[in-house]
Amino acid sequence: MLLPLRARMSLSPPIVELDSVTKRFGDDSRSPAILDGLTFRAAPGEFISLIGASGCGKSTVLRLIAGLTAPTSGRILVENAPACTTPANRAFLFQDATLLPWLTVRANAELLLKLRGVPSTARRERALRLLELARIAHLADRHPRQLSGGEKMRVSLARALTLEPSLLLLDEPFAALDELTREHLNEELLALRERSRWTAFFVTHSVAEAVFLSTRILILSAGRIAHDLPVDLPYPRTATTREQPAFHALVSQISRLLRTAAGSSRGHEAVPSSTR
């Protein structure tokens, strides 16, 4: 069931390309590497989840692709341009909803368009359409403090999609929500993706969430890719997907791999890779 994706991916040019990327914090070359020679490619339309023990560098990968931080060495290309130059095509969803508390939901949804200088009628229309798609148009005139955690995340998602990004970077966006809300938002995230087919990088601690959403899962360990796994469940995926035996089999299989990867990184052993 777990096959390398290389062959399939090479058909279309990659949207994201990491080439022996190393990242250390601080200027000291002796400080430990968070990422240690990371290399992979993502094809357009992939939904890639990054999982791994805390501190394995998942979030750093996202921040590097976002251009929020620069690698110590190595090369990162997004749509064939260095990652730090053109964040126009990328949107970031933080673990926190990062809404501006002094703005209404509507004004929050319009924020990125406003920063980009989109005229007010156009941005009003586009923001409202996305609030409708995220099913929160009726909350448009509220302030963030009047919303639940799930509603705030929906605003954050709608705002990210107003720029029509080709690449969506999600850093544990649903981690703080209760299980039911999280499952619901996962389903709606996939429904939104059906419409516009952005490529996604998704950091999570939940194997079930990763399997439900992704076309491909990367298990990170000690700053490297320990496993690169395809998820061959058909789309569209709905609530019933979670009840299928194939889904459960994948979840338990990947959980097992995650445990061994985390265990071997603690022992500072070489990490065996199933795909390289």
């Binding site: 976002a66 251009g67 929020l68 964040p87 126009a88 990328r90 949107a91 970031f92 933080f94 990062t98 501006l100 924020l111 990125l112 920063l115 980009r116």
Partner: peptide
């Protein structure tokens, strides 16, 4: 929020 604004250029 600063990161959000940086992403928004």
């Amino acid at each position: 929020l600063v990161d959000l604004f940086r992403m928004g250029r």
